[in-house]
């Protein structure tokens, strides 16, 4: 039962990932793509947490933490670039 629900959650997260990926490819503006990128990262963090659960490896969570940190910095930097760049 629990096992099944974990895989169900992973499937739903996968669909959410595909939807965000569609927005990432479709655009139309750079801001839309960054939004989609941010969502993709967060869905990936959820996915990493689920993978850690399925594999039973706590070390994966450190990867999720670093990923969250990099995503935040990345979005801030790109937003700054858009404000000044063009």
């Amino acid at each position: 039962m629990v096992e099944f629900l974990i895989y169900l959650a992973a499937t739903i997260a996968g669909i959410a990932f595909l939807l965000a990926l569609w927005r990432f490819i479709a655009g139309p503006t750079a801001v839309d793509r960054i939004i989609a990128f941010d969502s993709l990262t967060i869905v990936s963090i959820t996915g990493i947490a689920l993978a850690a659960l399925a594999e039973g490896r706590g070390i994966y969570l450190d990867v999720a933490l670093v990923y969250a940190l990099l995503s935040f910095l990345g979005v801030i930097v790109v937003a700054r670039y858009i404000e000044r760049g063009f």
């Binding site: 629900l5 959650a9 739903i12």
Partner: peptide, 30 residues
């Protein structure tokens, strides 16, 4: 069981966000 239900609930919200990303008309609403 509570944990597993929370997992599914959390990803369901992510899915609603994904649908919002696709359906919303402009960048701000997205």
């Amino acid at each position: 069981l509570l944990g597993a239900i929370l997992l599914v609930g959390g990803t369901a919200f992510l899915l609603s966000g994904g649908i919002g990303l696709v359906r919303m008309p402009d960048a701000y609403n997205r």
